[in-house]
């Protein structure tokens, strides 16, 4: 499924009428089966963009369209930056949530959820509540919940931010392997340039607030990705190029706060 973001703008207006322009005129197309990483300084509207694609907020202008949606699969599923787990549901219950809404039978739900609990390394914690888990484990529950519904487009908002370096690396491998198998369209927000280049086909760099598309950079690495590629000149050059693009933006954004 293709995701077309067309001249999207979002201005938040609070109760007192104060306006924050988060996104202005963002156009972006994520091709079918493409893995796109979204980079940009803090507060530039990355989460806003993902929420707009998932249909979770009213946009101010422009629109989001899905081209050739598959039947029988949910269009999108989201991994939230803040995890957004249901505190009253166990790990198992959280992972099953989306499957419930799809109307899947209980036994099938249970089986499906257990597979993803395994994949995300949460086996043995099925009956725990979110408050009994570490930050990294909570984040993995959020990932499992999204993967469980097998969406046509997967929206991931800094999905590995709370993981330690080793777990992060393992989860990157898992996600890449899963993507090789399913070729789900992925829109992936991250702060980490190395991660973006290592995982994605294309890296989209947003400007500081209000977010606009600053650059779209194709990653010149082959699939499947291997760790060894992180020493290839193509990888290093791309990382360098994005860093120099982002440096000034990040500095200005920081000074603004």
């Amino acid at each position: 499924m293709r995701v077309i973001i067309d001249r999207l703008a979002k201005t938040y207006v609070d109760r007192h009428g104060a306006a924050v322009e988060a996104l202005s005129d963002v156009s972006l197309t994520v091709e079918s089966q493409e893995f796109v990483a979204l980079l940009g300084p803090s507060g530039c509207g990355k989460s806003t963009l993902l929420n707009a694609v998932a249909g979770l907020l009213p946009v101010s202008a422009g629109e989001v369209m899905f081209e050739s949606p598959p039947s029988g699969r949910p269009l999108t599923a989201m991994v939230f930056q803040e995890f957004a787990l249901f505190p009253w549901r166990t790990v198992q219950g959280n992972v099953e949530f989306g499957l419930e809404e799809l109307g899947m039978a209980a036994a099938e739900r249970g089986r499906r959820a257990r597979v993803l609990i395994e994949t995300t390394g949460l086996a043995g914690f099925e009956a725990r509540y979110p408050h009994q888990l570490s930050g990294g484990m909570r984040q993995r529950v959020g990932i499992a919940r999204a993967l469980a519904v097998d969406p046509a487009a997967l929206l991931m908002d800094e999905p590995f931010s709370a993981l330690d370096a080793q777990t992060r690396q393992l989860m990157q491998e898992e996600l890449l392997a899963l993507w090789e198998r399913t070729r789900t369209t992925i829109l992936y927000v991250t702060h980490n340039i190395q991660e973006a280049v290592y995982m994605a086909d294309r890296v989209v760099v947003l400007s500081r607030r209000p977010g606009r598309v600053l650059a779209e950079i194709d990653v010149p690495l082959k699939r499947p990705r291997t760790e060894a590629m992180q020493t290839e000149p193509g990888y290093l050059e791309t990382v360098e190029r994005i860093w120099s693009l982002i440096k000034d933006q990040a500095r200005a954004a920081l000074a603004e706060q």
Binding site: L56, M78, F80, A84, L85, E101
Partner: peptide, 21 residues
């Protein structure tokens, strides 16, 4: 509101949101 949005993101309608969130 974040949890409500999360439920909607996974396909919950109005009454599902009331019951489950």
């Amino acid at each position: 509101p974040l949890l409500i949005r999360a439920a909607v993101a996974f396909g919950a309608g109005r009454f599902s949101v009331i019951r489950k969130v």
